[in-house]
């Protein structure tokens, strides 16, 4: 019979992680991390936001990018779900629409790693010349 994971295994994982985290800051302080909010209301979930969020959590960890991925509600772009809001440290948040797993991969590789802007940005919070 295969062994089922229990809280004792979690303790082992914790001790392991604590060792790794010692040099870095711990906890929920996200100031220096990339923050990604996945819109997860009915519209987002029905369009596959959960798969995208699972993908982001797993891939960002694999690719060693410090990021916090959380859920948020509907931003009113139901037609463009799944949507993500990506905030890089010290930068304005950018909202991407129609994010499937391929798009999510592109966002990690191009926008998060290299700062390139890609197709599918929803101009939610842009500054006009007049406002500057």
């Amino acid at each position: 019979m295969t062994k089922v994971k229990s809280l004792a295994d979690l303790k082992k994982l914790k001790d392991n992680l604590q060792g790794q985290l010692k040099l870095r800051e711990k906890g929920l302080d996200a100031g220096s991390h990339v923050q990604i909010k996945v819109a997860m209301a009915t519209c987002g979930i029905a369009s596959g936001a959960k798969g995208v969020m699972d993908f982001l959590i797993e891939e960002l960890d694999k690719r060693n990018i410090e990021a916090v991925v959380t859920q948020t509600g509907c931003m009113g772009y139901c037609y463009a779900e799944p949507t993500l809001e990506v905030t890089k440290p010290g930068e304005e948040p950018i909202v991407f629409g129609y994010v499937d797993i391929r798009k999510a991969d592109e966002i990690i590789e191009k926008y998060i790693k290299n700062g390139e802007l890609i197709d599918g940005i929803i101009p939610q919070n842009y500054e006009t010349i007049q406002n500057k």
């Binding site: 089922v4 994971k5 229990s6 809280l7 979690l10 994982l13 914790k14 985290l21 797993e58």
Partner: peptide, 24 residues
């Protein structure tokens, strides 16, 4: 309680929780 100062938002913890529930 078990995690103490390690955050539940840690990707490795999330993966662990998913697998633990799945197996149980």
């Amino acid at each position: 309680t078990e995690l103490q100062d390690v955050s539940i938002t840690n990707p490795k913890v999330i993966k662990f929780i998913r697998e633990m529930i799945q197996e149980n």
